[in-house]
Each structure stands twice: as C-alpha cells, then as structure tokens.
Design a protein around this nucleic acid. Structure first.
Lengths: 167, 167
DNA sequence: TTTTATTTTCAAAAAAAACTGAAAAATTTA
DNA sequence: TAAATTTTTCAGTTTTTTTTGAAAATAAAA
C-alpha cells in the first residue's frame, strides 16, 4: 500500500469509528487528516483533501481546537492560518478522556448528587431506586478518579503498573 | 423529590447522556426505565410511559437484548412478553465495555493490522505514518486487554487493586 | 485610507437518523 | 382447526444533525 492510499483509508476509518462514539464524521476525519499529515495544513488544504465546504471546515477545526486536539500554527511569510494535531496517540487519548470527563461525566455526577427520593424511604421500591442511583454515582466518581490518574501518569509507568496489578 | 419525579428525571438524563456517546435517545431511555422499574414491564407499559410508538419500542428493546442489557421475562398467566434490566451498575458497565470492544475496538484493531505503508520505507513521512498507526494499534490492544481484565474482575477487588497501584 | 485576502457566521438545503403506524407474521387460546 | 392476541417489519414521515455557500466581519497589505 502506498502512503496516500493508506492515509485515505485511515481517515475514513477514523471518521466511522468516531461517529459510533458521538463525534461527527467530518470532525473525526479532519482530526485524522491532521494526525497523519507531515506538515501543518490550512483550511483550503482540508477543504480540498476531504471535499468539504469552507464553513464546515472552519466550524469543525474550531471545535477540534476547543477540544485541545488541534493547534493553530503560525508560519512566517504565510498569511493563512495553519493547523496541526498531536501525533502521540497516548497524549491524544488523555486529552479526549479529560474533555469527556469535564463535558459529560462531571455534569452527570452533579445531576446524580441531587437525585434522591426523600419521601417514604422505608418503601422497598424507593430503597432500590436510591441504591441504583447511588451505585451509578459511585461508579461515575470512580471512573473520574481513574481518568485523573491516567491523565497524570506517564504512559509506560501506567501500563506496567496496571499489568502488575492485574496479574 | 418523590419516586415518580425522580425516575422521570433519571430517564431523561440517561437518554441525554447516552446520546452523547452514540446511543439513540429512546434506547437509552428504555434502558433507564427498566433499570429503575421494580417490576418487569411489557411493550405497552414502555410505550405509555415514554410516549413512543410500538415499532420504536419493539426495535429498541430488541437492540437492548442484543447488547445483553435487557432480558425477556416469562410471567406465568401473562401472554405478553415482559422485560427487565440489570440494576447492578457494575455489571451493566462490564456488559457495555464488552460489547463496545467486540463491535468497535476489535474491528478497528483488525483494520489497523493491515494498514502499513510498505513502499519507500526509509522516507521520513512514511516512517512517521507507520509509527502513528502502530501507536494507535498498540493503544487499542492495550485498551482491549484492560477491558478483558475488568470484565473478569470482581468490582471491589478491581478498585482496591487499582487504588493501590495508583497511590 | 482603500483594496485584497482570509476567516467567521448563519439561514437555508441536504443528508442522516429516528420514529410512526398499519399490515403482515407469528404465537397462543379456544 | 379458526379466532384472538401479540410481535415484527418496514415504507413513508418527521425530526435532528450536518453541510453548504454566500454575505458579513476581520485582518493584512498596498
């Protein structure tokens, strides 16, 4: 397989994988394109390579920047803005975990904190409900702590430690 | 807050949380409804409680059964089928991890195995590309192994072991 | 300042996903 | 067996999400 074919396939696969996890296809494809691009690209490059409009390109790049997955790059002598993405997948994974925690897990935990039935608390059904919610809240909190630990950790340290425990 | 209000809020929240992770809202809501229901429910119950059509109810329940998140229950004397969902969130989480691994992670790993540029392999750009892909493949494999370990493990053993390592 | 280049916005269009409801199929009871 | 009930299917509809493209805003150059 040659480089261009391989890149194309990777971009398509990353787009389809992302869309199964609630990330829109174009955003995932732009991310993939920048991850495998040796040089920073500008908006026109992205438009041409992925066949998407200027507006779409602009909005999804901005969103990727908000996620911390893409950075603006200044190239001297160039008037247009250029963009790059981190290539170290471990760092990428940490960024995604941090953001999903902040955007989705933490709001869920806050919501669950206030969700308790105070009436008729000796009723079996009420007890079960409160326990189910408590279980979800605790699992979410534990997941949040785990993410924090992973984010702070060095890749090799983390996996080695994990494998040791798991043995 | 009373039980019915709390259930309603939980169902709405679970639906919205699910849809951020690529699960359709109704499917997540049916799952939530069954998780907090003290008794098995039939299709008519679900239709009425969530205000959705019979077809929608049927398809999403089937999908939840495919995921292993909902079970059919036979109630003697009843002609209709009834449904329940596991209430232990740890078991639920393990089921979801196992299924997402099987449906999404493993296909990605298989795809990445075949994705290698063999032409011009001393070229810097080709080298970088192959390394990026290799990194993604290795992280995915590691994630897969971690999921396998979690699935096999007992909840308390897992968290205790994890906390010990992480300290 | 004016002109040119670039980026951003957003209403409208297109595409994708989800949902409905009634007919068909399957199952159970009589 | 036929009748009654329940479940499933899926073409058509609705809703939601994504995308376009042109105008407006911004920034840089002349």
């Amino acid at each position: 397989m040659n480089l261009d074919e391989a890149k194309k396939e990777f971009i398509a696969a990353w787009g389809s994988f992302g869309s199964k996890w609630g990330i829109n296809r174009t955003m995932a494809q732009i991310h993939a394109l920048l991850m495998v691009s040796h040089y920073p690209l500008n908006a026109d490059d992205v438009m041409e390579l992925l066949n998407v409009s200027r507006g779409n390109t602009n909005m999804n790049i901005r969103e990727l920047i908000n996620w911390g997955l893409v950075d603006r790059v200044i190239i001297s002598g160039e008037r247009k803005e250029f963009f790059t993405a981190e290539k170290d997948i471990w760092k990428v994974a940490k960024t995604i975990m941090r953001e999903r925690k902040r955007r989705e897990l933490e709001p869920l935990i806050d919501f669950l904190k206030d969700l308790k039935v105070n009436e008729d608390m000796q009723n079996e059904e009420v007890k079960t409900f409160n326990e189910t919610i408590k279980g979800i809240k605790e699992l979410s909190e534990q997941a949040g702590k785990t993410i924090d630990t992973i984010i702070k950790s060095d890749e090799h340290w983390f996996w080695n430690a994990f494998l040791k425990i798991m043995r």
